[in-house]
Design a protein around this nucleic acid. Structure first.
Lengths: 334, 334
DNA sequence: CTGTTAGCGCGTTCAT
DNA sequence: ATGAACGCGCTAACAG
């Protein structure tokens, strides 16, 4: 691997000059620039990004924390973030936090140890205080799917309450009155907000909220199935089931079908997130679009603009509105 | 951020000694070690990994190339690779190649520029020659889901031919005789091997291979739907449809159902890969387990052992056998 | 076992 | 506009 030094010799100029043409900030005469560039490709010179980082105190890498690397939910976001940042020559280091407080902290420390210039976090388990403290330690943090008042401009999130509202309202508008709800873990902000939206829609339609028609799951498919079983065990009847995410909706549908109920004829189901497989389900799932990939886009551009001082044409919103995706799993009750 | 120098002063020892206790290779007396460690946590010292990399000529990062960051296929593999490597203190830089030759090359160059100590590739579009050349340039390459004879020990792959064989054989064993096949893009090694397995199973059962019952898709859901339409257009009847991956199986099932055919009663469907959503489908998809995450495990450990010289207890196989996963989408023909 | 001394490859003053 | 020199934080000989 050729170094800057060899290039400088080959071009008959100084080290500093080579560095200048590379970075392009400072003026270099056209003639010398040409000589240097010629020398560079003759030698097949590639800058050593490690040395650059050490000298400039910039690693040109940004950390990304997601809950899981697999699963449909994060795919698009990771994809978007990677694309945006790599086009800008930055690289993204991805870690998984597994929705566990200690693991999330470990992952964040890991990212920081690697001297990431910024970190984009989908953190579910760590506290607001921890995040605020990071922010005050002046590490460049960006939050996805979470809002903390004191660092609002660094947060990119959706209106989960509205999403929950829209889901249940869709059921109500279709004529349903007995609506069950499978929630996500209540300690997670998004789950509790979605539930709040559900209740608001009910209230607005003068439908009493029946605690028995509410069960709590962990956002996974099997918990959707278990949740359905619990609901069934109450002996209460319901014609619609809204779930706090698509995974649980899928599990619930499977469980219901195995119990002999026809979907959507006997039971309408509504999900949340619109993950990829939502349209692969049978019936195709009516759900709420959770614009997670747009949040990723916003977060990545925020980093480009504020950390790397690049001018991005996009003015960004921090709040992304969810919307209803109409498919086949919701019909009027029979 | 405290540096090694400040630690050495605080502990009253030399720079080198501090470095030694950090790396632990060389002997240091217990007393001095204690002093150093004490100084380290008093100062909250964290090694600067960039500087370490520059000095040691090791970035402690390994690159990972996948076709897509989203989608079910790579999730588990990424997850496995990240976990194994992070536990070893290495970090993984993930890039997407989008099954495009130029993009794959760009991504690989990018990884190399970042001075990755090794790269793990799921490369679909670049040629064997390109990969071999990389290998000879003595960059540490590991291949997933691909086999190149001259660098076989660096390849982790499944027996796609066997997988294709098992899929079709399952249909035959269930009593099917008219079996259609939706292939993946033939230029991809795995797709053509799976097809070969399909043909072998047919031949073994003395069923003539009918070219009209073969269509080629691109591994995506919509191409499964289109493939089904093409098959329908031939006017030929078939009672089983085997697809080269689960995505296309899903698309085909949806298309068939929209055309009024009952699955599996009137048409059995078999997939390939056993991606997560395969069990979310209705009916639950009978498919072939493609042990992609075990390949990732193997690849990551290979890197640990051969690049980082860590002893891994696991002896590894390079070949991972596929197997049939029996679910509900395959039944005896009526 | 420990300290001294060179670099690693590059960015960045400060002169010229 | 260009060159010389120093330093980023750490590892790795080489002495002792």
């Amino acid at each position: 691997m050729a170094t800057i030094y060899e290039v400088s010799k080959a071009a008959g100029v100084s080290l500093a000059t080579v560095s200048r043409v590379m970075n392009g900030n400072v003026k270099v005469s056209d003639r010398t620039r040409a000589k240097v560039i010629k020398a560079m490709d003759e030698l097949g010179y590639k800058p050593n990004s490690i040395a650059q980082s050490l000298a400039s105190n910039r690693s040109n890498s940004v950390g990304l924390l997601v809950s899981e690397l697999h699963g449909s939910f994060f795919g698009n976001m990771m994809s978007t973030v990677e694309q945006v940042l790599r086009n800008a020559g930055k690289h993204v280091v991805i870690t998984a936090g597994h929705s566990d407080e200690q693991k999330e902290k470990d992952a964040i420390e890991f990212l920081l140890d690697r001297r990431c210039d910024a970190i984009i976090l989908h953190a579910e388990a760590v506290s607001d205080e921890y995040l605020l403290e990071l922010n005050q330690r002046n590490v460049e943090v960006v939050l996805i799917n979470r809002r903390i008042e004191q660092m609002a401009e660094r947060c990119f999130y959706t209106d989960n309450e509205l999403g929950g509202y829209l889901a249940t309202k869709a059921a109500i508008d279709a004529g349903h009155k007995d609506i069950a709800y499978i929630s996500g873990p209540r300690f997670k902000q998004d789950a509790s907000e979605r539930l709040a939206g559900h209740k608001r829609a009910l209230a607005e339609a003068n439908i009493d909220f029946n605690p028995q028609l509410l069960v709590e799951g962990g956002f996974h498919e099997d918990e959707g199935a278990q949740g359905y079983a619990q609901l069934l065990a109450t002996g209460l009847s319901f014609t619609a089931l809204v779930c706090a995410n698509d995974e649980m909706a899928s599990g619930a549908m499977t469980a219901a079908r195995e119990g002999g109920v026809l979907i959507p004829e006997q039971l309408s189901v509504i999900g949340f997130d619109d993950v990829l497989f939502a349209r692969y389900l049978y019936p195709k799932l009516t759900t709420i679009d959770n614009p997670i990939q747009r949040m990723g886009y916003g977060a990545a551009h925020w980093v480009l603009e504020h950390v790397y001082k690049q001018k991005t044409p996009k003015q960004h919103t921090n709040l992304f509105a969810p919307k209803l995706i109409v498919r086949d799993s919701l019909v009027v009750p029979s």
